[in-house]
Amino acid sequence: MEDFQIIDNCLMVKLPVEVDHHRASYICERADKYLLEENVEHVVFDFEDTRFMDSSGIGIIMGRYKKIACFGGKVYAIHADRQIQRILTISGLTKIVEVLA
């Protein structure tokens, strides 16, 4: 299950085991609620539990980036395994997302 937490000015989004279109719509909906109601500057996506992601995951990250980038916010990806890092690289997302170990 996805999990949301606000730490300082960051929204931490813990992604579920499998990120596909079915789960993505829930995650976007809830993340946007936090972005709207809380004082969030940066978004951190935590891939610790994630074993599968397709282009829907890219859509989640791109959408959130567009919402916060105009206010100087940054998007981070943490705990991404090899496969997730590969997907981030192929999609070109590593240009806008900082991937931290």
């Binding site: 719509s25 397709d54 282009s55 829907s56 890219i58 859509g59 192929i90």
Partner: peptide, 18 residues
Amino acid sequence: PLYTTKPQLNRSGMGFAF
């Protein structure tokens, strides 16, 4: 790549590219 007819649904347009 990046072309999508449903950007409002957070689709990335990367499906065929993947």
